[in-house]
Amino acid sequence: MVDKFIEDKVTRVPIKQDGQEVKVDFNDLKSGGFIKQRQRDLFAVRLRCPGGRLDTKKLVEIAKLADKYSKQGVVHFSFRQSLEILYVDYKDFDNLVRDLEKIGQKVASCGPRVRVPTACGGCEYNPNGLTDTQKMAKMVDEKYFGTPCHHKFKTSFSGCPIDCARTKEMDLGFQGVVEPVWDEDTCTGCTICSKACKEDAIKSHPETGKPIYDPQKCIYCGDCIRACPTESWQAKRYGHFVRIGGRHGRHPREANNVANFIPDEKVPETIEKTLEWYKVNGKKGERIGKTIDRVGIESYMKFMEPVFKSGEPLKTNTKPGWEKV
């Protein structure tokens, strides 16, 4: 009876159960989304659900498999939007994985690598959403999932500054932003935008009612654009506010704010270059936030400059707020 879960070091592990040998090939199951439970022989199997999205046909099939393989007939929605099938006997791993493959469902990962991205609903169906978070999560999952790193590497996408996907706590987080521009000619001075702005970034002129905009206070949420009855506020550009080095856990660290208005098409490059910097500067077992604390954020900023100039690099010494350069 082996009740210790072996992850990276050994790929093929013969496991003895009541004198019978069961072969479990961890190389085939290379994602490693199998987490030992406190109960003997039983594991939780985490499914790969980027952005927490599942199509309903697949969900029905997953439900059938969960019912078949979970000894207690339960699943759990994890904090990173994965669906976990609980109480799975390790002797069933091969069969479960095969059955999951038939319905096109993959298993998630643990350990020192790029994890399944999380994401909120974003602009597809959330009224606050500014970016297509689900599309981005899918892209990151397809391109970067499982990439080995010095430690776990978590990414997430929030559609707007409300930040439901908690980009401040990610190794690399992307939060939607929009820059508003105002057209004086069409403005009727109705004062609604100054009411709609929750950041006090718009005051109404005492006589005309027209907006007086303070870009230092603006967090680029777009509420003014959505509220204005005459479309006098318009979107100048959309993009991602980028945060690096966040984590939670035992030693939480709030991310450094590093860039603003990074366009969709520069997100892959942002991830690739960040992983490159981490590879060179990080140490085994060190989260990227720790690398930043040890090596200095300036090194990262310098390295990222070619990508970040597609938007606006930020002054990173100002926490917890942020400043435009």
């Binding site: 009224p127 959505r226 509220a227």
Partner: peptide, 15 residues
Amino acid sequence: IQNVPKSIKEEGHKI
């Protein structure tokens, strides 16, 4: 006044 005008616009009506 923060919320209702946004929602009215989103439903396609005009203030």
